[in-house]
Design a protein around this nucleic acid. Structure first.
Length: 235
DNA sequence: GCGACAG
DNA sequence: ATCTTGTCGC
């Protein structure tokens, strides 16, 4: 992760993103009735001997009962730096490794980060869809400002939202999942529409967090696994 | 030098 | 993302 050529990396990454972009399909007559299992994906990091490591956790829940159905994780050294707009290149290697360990196949993956709400519509949720071949949703905790466009704060009511429109195109929305708590930023990943994404996210909110359960659980899990790996010396 | 900046 | 305790408020 050291001495890399930042400009060369960004050029290479931008090219990959622009090549994937035409394959995005948001109008997919997505059927929520067919959703049974939802996966939440998240990562956490730590340093050791001048190197950076990370763990990716995936938690699958049953959409109707909210019961945890499966948990898996992967971990390893992180090879790519964090560059705003290119999060996928840093996190996807471990995500893909973790996905291989799943014994159940989720109907949807929810990511901690954006999807279509991105400079080139290629946030991690969208980028990941091409490896997962499943619909994905992006859920970010903070706003990634694009082309100087600010988001409009939604009303202080659970479920209220404002769309984020840039050049006449809806990129995503600021969604208030709990009253008197900062909104989250929901966007399509791929093969799903924004209304369905919003409905699913809202249906996964409980009293524990402003984040939907799958992502929240994956987040908690990464902290547990990191602690476990660090204490065991990470052999 | 200063501000931006998903995680 | 990460470094980190108590504390104010519903």
């Amino acid at each position: 992760m050291n001495n890399f050529d930042g400009n060369k990396l960004i050029q290479e990454f931008s090219k990959i993103q622009s090549e994937l972009f035409p394959r995005i399909k948001l109008e997919n007559n997505f059927q929520i009735e067919n959703v049974q299992l939802i996966a939440g994906v998240d990562l956490s990091y730590w340093n050791l001997n001048e190197r950076k490591y990370g763990t990716c956790c995936i938690v699958i829940i049953d959409y109707s009962t909210k019961v945890i159905v499966e948990k898996v994780y992967s971990y390893g050294e992180i090879q790519t730096p964090y560059i705003p707009g290119f999060l996928a290149f840093r996190e996807l290697p471990l995500v893909i490794e973790a996905v291989k360990k799943l014994t159940k196949q989720p109907d949807i993956y929810m990511f901690d980060g954006n999807g279509y709400l991105h400079y080139r519509h290629m946030g991690i949720a969208t980028h990941a869809s091409f490896f997962l071949n499943k619909p994905t949703i992006g859920v970010a905790k903070s706003y990634l400002k694009i082309q100087d466009v600010d988001f409009i704060m939604p009303e202080n009511l659970k479920g209220s939202y404002t769309d984020i429109v840039i050049n006449n195109e809806v990129y995503g929305r600021a969604l208030r999942t709990r009253i008197s708590v900062k909104p989250i930023f929901v966007s399509c990943g791929n093969w799903i529409d924004l209304d369905s994404s919003t409905e699913i996210v809202l249906n996964c909110i409980n009293n524990e967090s402003r984040l939907p359960i799958p992502v929240r659980l994956a987040d908690l899990e990464t902290h547990k696994i990191r602690k476990l790996l660090m204490e065991s010396g990470m052999e």
